[in-house]
Design a protein around this nucleic acid. Sequence first.
DNA 1: TTGCTTGCAAATTATTTGCAATGCG
DNA 2: CGCATTGCAAATAATTTGCAAGCAA
Lengths: 147, 147
Amino acid sequence: MHAPNFNTLCERLQQKAYKITPQRQVIIKALLDNCDQHLSADEVHAIVKEQHPEIGLATVYRTLEICASLKILHQIEFGDGCTRYEFAKGDAHRHHHLICITCGKVTEFDDDLLETLEAWVSKKAGFKIADHQLKLYGYCEDCQHPG
Amino acid sequence: MHAPNFNTLCERLQQKAYKITPQRQVIIKALLDNCDQHLSADEVHAIVKEQHPEIGLATVYRTLEICASLKILHQIEFGDGCTRYEFAKGDAHRHHHLICITCGKVTEFDDDLLETLEAWVSKKAGFKIADHQLKLYGYCEDCQHPG
DNA sequence: TTGCTTGCAAATTATTTGCAATGCG
DNA sequence: CGCATTGCAAATAATTTGCAAGCAA
């Protein structure tokens, strides 16, 4: 849901001496157009190929890799065998993933309630927390009330 | 750390009409001997092959698959490209994973503090939670105080 | 111009599957 | 004895990589 600005993203690439090639622009736009999804490399490639059949899957992988290394994208795995991507949010904007066991739908949920827990873990385990990832598996509203 | 009883596990397999073959016994014992680790299929295979070189990787995969389907094992992914396994704990015994960004070590942390958060999400998002998975990325004690 | 990028095909890695032989119950 | 199970090799699937040609800066 959180959609960064296209030009800002390009600048962040340039700052690290990455060239703004047409392929990278197309891929980033595809991600922006679908920022409510959690696309896989293959899915990004499929979208991009519609208008630009010449773009190769390897280029998609390489672009996603760069964006992940620049913390523009986050990589997540929902257990379906491939890595998926979402735009990284700032530290202040934490969110979790609600994964429906029945239909597989993934919803995001914003909240900051983990703060207390993190403070506790930090103190108890001597572990300095930098990031977290919470997945909640269960049943979405549609699947709870079928028909 | 949570180590179930070998015989109990065999009984659970038998109850579902799975045969207690020597291969399965060896694989389960390897998992029990390393219940403080989060082994991958390949790692289980390597351990098992030391004493039983005839056991194939496919058999390891198939056994892990069965155990996962019986909820004897949980599958987790730490982002290193392969599925890892740990013994499932009962609902009452929740735990999280602390993953060190520096050395990659995975520690477990028990706690029930997610209860409040789950109640909140449940109410706010209309999502019926069945299970959860929390990964905390950061720096373990050793990596915080090197040398 | 010049080194970063790209597309393609081949290589890798994790996991699955087909099948004949084997063995648990 | 019958059917689940096994080992092996081949098949998939996701991702990576080598390399010559192309292009952004």
